[in-house]
Design a protein around this nucleic acid. Structure first.
Lengths: 175, 175
DNA sequence: CGATAATGGTTCATAATTGAAATATTATTG
DNA sequence: CAATAATATTTCAATTATGAACCATTATCG
């Protein structure tokens, strides 16, 4: 689905611009710029994986990717983190974080204590229960991700990671 | 932001599993599985780009990526498409498509005619106005995407596309 | 010090998305 | 042909995210 739809070769109104690189095998080479096609693929891969993970988190743990991601961020910060830190990390609005945190706290998965130095801010930490529950989820989550991506050869994976890392760096500068 | 947070090397409780490939230069190698890191990068790149595009579409054309994507799908299908086809293409629920289509039709950007053979389905097509407006947006959209991704070398781009295509194929089978 | 700015969070109205139930039409099959 | 299943779409309640206005606290600096 998505951009991979087979196209019945339409009226060849005007010759397509030659492909920049004639590497790709099957692919609908749409004549579109490489960048555009990368973006479409990227988006479609990401949404696919995201939906799969979300569905499974829902079914197996009755939770969402947003909650899981928040827990994951806290899990890697034993010092704790403030609301806005988390908001930045997850690239999610402050308002959303407030709601998320409220629920997670109500469920006893995280603690929230007012910072002693700055009474505007909170320090969020994983609770014991939170850490345990996150552990369970993280294991399954990892299995799922490995199942989804793991069929790529180690070399392909390593390449892909490098390219994505490069792209991310550019985006960091540019956005 | 995101997974790029620097980590102060914590208590090295147990030796980390050796990296599968010792290729990556700077990167916070978290000891996490390659697949997990790919997924995190992928997600963060995708959301970054998505947010950037959405913001610009909003500012410059007062529209959204969802609307734009729907128009784009119709633009590449002069024969038209049904609601569910579009719903599949965009990986968006049927309900959402109904709403989207209603607005786009109200704005005069698309036509919607009942199919003659099957009176359950509609054929959606770009209207004249829709095609023109889409053209304008598409040009800008492409510029933005090129600006965001185009700093990668052509080789890197081509590689990236190939890997994403590979990944997408696996996902197609798996999901 | 005291005024003003900046920062951290919350609230709230708005918008978008989902999934399930409902409706209408077409297909199947006994 | 009638009953039942399958398909295409709509409706609707529930969930979630966004961004702007707002409150409280801390920083800045004249």
């Amino acid at each position: 689905m998505d951009a991979t739809v087979k196209r019945k070769a339409r009226s060849p109104k005007s010759a397509r611009p030659p492909p920049l690189l004639a590497v790709e095998p099957v692919q609908e080479s749409d004549g579109a710029h490489l960048e555009l096609r990368i973006w479409l693929r990227l988006l479609s891969c990401a949404t696919r994986i995201e939906k799969a993970l979300n569905a499974r988190l829902r079914k197996e743990f009755n939770t969402t990717l947003a909650r899981f991601d928040l827990l994951a961020q806290l899990a890697r910060k034993p010092e704790g983190a403030s609301m806005s830190e988390v908001s930045d990390l997850l690239m999610v609005s402050n308002g959303a974080i407030t709601a998320l945190v409220q629920k997670l706290e109500a469920d006893g998965l995280i603690h929230r204590e007012v910072s002693s130095e700055d009474r505007r801010t909170f320090r969020l930490r994983l609770s014991q229960d939170g850490a345990k529950e996150f552990g369970r989820m993280a294991r399954r989550h990892e299995e799922w991700v490995i199942a989804l991506i793991g069929e790529l050869s180690p070399v392909a994976q390593s390449d892909l990671l490098q390219h994505l890392t490069l792209l991310k760096r550019r985006l960091d500068k540019y956005t």
